[in-house]
Nucleic acid binder design. Sequence first.
DNA 1: GCCATATAGTATCATATGCAACGATATTCG
DNA 2: CGAATATCGTTGCATATGATACTATATGGC
Lengths: 159, 159
Amino acid sequence: MSVEAANDQGFSLDAYLPYRLSVASNAVSGLIARAYQDRFSLSIPQWRVICVLAEDGGVTQGQIVGRTMMDKVTVSRAAQELLKRHLVARTDHQADGRSHVLALTAEGSSLHAEIAPLALAYEAALISGLAPGEVALLKRLLTRLQSVAGQLAGDATQA
Amino acid sequence: MSVEAANDQGFSLDAYLPYRLSVASNAVSGLIARAYQDRFSLSIPQWRVICVLAEDGGVTQGQIVGRTMMDKVTVSRAAQELLKRHLVARTDHQADGRSHVLALTAEGSSLHAEIAPLALAYEAALISGLAPGEVALLKRLLTRLQSVAGQLAGDATQA
DNA sequence: GCCATATAGTATCATATGCAACGATATTCG
DNA sequence: CGAATATCGTTGCATATGATACTATATGGC
């Protein structure tokens, strides 16, 4: 319909999966990030670190990096801020003097317990109206995209 | 299994949709961004502007903002760089002195024609092994998540 | 027609991100 | 044991991003 464009060889931005994925992710991440920031003054990396510690107990920063795909610098800065706020505690690693073991303090643990229901409520709101099978498929497909992208990047991200 | 953690009230980061979405999107965006940057010295915002112009012809920056969810500052900077490289041309808007109409130059158009197949090849690689119905559902679900997130943010993003 | 307000686009600033370099400790190999 | 190399975490830097303020123009009420 456009008068002078017509350069279109069948490429449509709106239908392009990487674009759709990025736009959807930005919308969702922005929503969640603002919620954590406004109510708890937590960034998303900080919240992720708290989650890993709540799930796995005492781990090193390197282990958090391996588990979350975050950059080690991001994890380092998140951990430092959480330390300053006494939400996590650090103990020297018993077998490696370069490393430390992080764990939630009681305060950090109770903050996690406070936020988790809110996080789940956001997820529930996002998937409201979707069939359970659709959600499961969505998560599976996202994992697959991540894995394929990792392989294409020549990365060692495992399947 | 962990000895002292056990703070887990059923919240698992790995199963959390916003997290999965963010990680998958970062992996895919990073892959695509590096490809465009390395081969064509284009950022993703620049590439998106080119795509909109290829599809829609002459539009204003404001229209690009409305169509792509990018910030107006991001679009402004992308457009300036593309102007400098003579990939797009600007003409004064005939009815609004504050605005301009952007369009691809011949050079910009041919760059778009060159990149589009590469972009489609990346998409094809990403979805290889998925059933067509799965891909269609994925795109539909992503659009829905974006829409719900927009509503929850109190935003005027239409359905 | 004139003033108040709204909008298009740009510039400025504050923050976030990730790469590269670094110091400290571990490990490997002669 | 000692030197070369690798790894953990931090720091510095260079870039990207988005909120805010600003300039110029447009629009609506009087």
